[in-house]
Design a protein around this nucleic acid. Sequence first.
RNA 1: CGGGGCGUAGCUCAGCCCGGUAGAGCGCUGCGUUUGGGACGCAGAAGUCGUCGGUUCAAAUCCGGCCGCCCCGACCA
Length: 592
Amino acid sequence: MRLSKFFGQTLREAPSESDSASSQMLVRAGYVRQLAAGLYSYLPLAHRSLRKIEQILREEMDAIGGQEMCMPVVHPAEIWQESGRWYEIGDEMGRFQDRKGRELVLAMTHEEVVTSLCKSEIRSYRQLPQMVYHIQTKFRDEPRARGGLIRVREFVMKDSYTLDKDFEGLQSQYEAHYDAYHRIGARLGLNLVAVQSDPGMMGGKVAHEFMYISPVGEDSLAICEETGYASNLDVANFQKIPEPASAPEPLTRVHTPGQSTIAKVADFCGVTTRQTGKMVFYMGDFGPEDPSRLIAACVRGDMEINELQLRYAAKAQALRPAEAEEITAAGCVPGYASMCDIDRTKALLVVDDLIPESTNLIVGANERDWHYTGANYGRDFTADVIAPIALAYDGAPDPIDGKPLQVVRGIEVGNIFQLGTRYSSSMGATYTDEDGEGFPIVMGSYGIGVGRALACVAEEYSDEYGMDLPISVAPYQVILVSLGREGEVHEAAETLYHELLAAGIEVLYDDRAVSPGIKFADADLRGIPLRCTVSSRSLKRGGAEFGRRRSKDLAILPLGDAVEQIQAGITECFNVLNRRLEDLPTWASRSE
RNA sequence: CGGGGCGUAGCUCAGCCCGGUAGAGCGCUGCGUUUGGGACGCAGAAGUCGUCGGUUCAAAUCCGGCCGCCCCGACCA
């Protein structure tokens, strides 16, 4: 392709629409343009990169037995009503009506369609297992799109679905995806970390997210490089080590004027926060039948609440922090709330499992400026629920070997999910087994965001001059820069361009009538990994210059075998990338 | 949905406080000179100042509503 005819300009300055490195670079380099919040156009450069990512996804899905198909973006409401998600999901689902007033849904994902296909296509255990996938547009009306391409409202996702007669089959296809996703990450030049994740209220027990570790990520992860433990912070476990037990002291009221926070109280009493108990209040939504109720959560003073685990422990559908009035209404004093004096008819008390193992805690006395010392579980208070509701933290002992966990941020590139029979049961997708008996199909679903993967690659491979994309993802393999508009330089560049095209090399040819500085700056920005320059200087030195983007170490290629050497350079780039395929994590090698 | 910021030429922004004929740099068009890291000269085109309303002799500027975009939080099948 000739840059003189190319659609999509580079920008000297980044538009002020987002501030993550990846989206600024992708905008500046002429890959994407924003149409509205969370809606992007993909210009020719991005489109070529996305097609390459999709091709890698195809190859890896096909390699584990996937069959590619394509399902619609617009669905009738009925299938979402059958699965129940029509009612469970709120404004995030795009809904509209056709001309007859029939309710339609924009696909957020395709479990419902796959399940409905199962009803027509799968009858017998003989037809199982199956793995189907497609690469298709999704729409999720995110309350807040952010981070450029990292969180958008319309996006393309590779989603695959497995169908099995039992959980053993599901497990095997799940493991195949686990390994394939690591291979995909490697081929994209990304280190993906598989972390345990929240299976949600979906019925399954096992789910993993494939994370690209980055400070701009939206998810927090707890990982331990030594033991290999890796988990979304939402579901991270850690070893809880109680303070050394001491003989029970009497529960004693002490005057603590103005000491309304844990840090102040501990300081005031001359103890560490580990010797205190902390109360945090939430309003829990328990569904339409049950009015929302106050939840009092108690963790040791040095720890924070894991809201997801609290929600599960309280069996609530949703939580939000309680307002001061709601706390007061239950007879509790904010800042001095006490698990000893709480009215359990007005609040559900959930305590972390470390609390019963802790002795002589300092806790609120439920009166302004007063605390108790010597609070002990069982004698001074009991709970409605005891559950692990404390949030893992940086440095917490990991659950495998007690080595310190690290809390880092990550971007979720992919996820794999054991659905079980959540959809097949509610929608009636069954197969007949050997004995002629009907059973719901056991399903799994597995996604990878194509555009998000590109954003992560751009994030990883950017510098102050632009992007330096892995050759597997770069829209072109080589940029050919001609520094001459006529005469022998022009002739030599034109000839080389046609030879490269004829050899099947993906070449972007900068034949524009602009200054060399602009050509080099644009070449750096666009992120094409290899550059070949033809100029009067290079011809004097014996041919064309060739090397990695921005490298000072340039080879002079005689024009006669330039194509061959450029081909060799491309192969070398792929070789570098392919080394990432060695020693990849696999399901069998993981340590959870 | 809560908090904050922004909306002026294709892009980045100034002008707004203190009302009085709309600006700069980059980009774009033409001509000429240039050609190894974002060249130079000359000439030129380009903006309903997000939108609606109010105040005023007069509004980009002051006031109010709405819309859009960005950031933080809530939310995230």
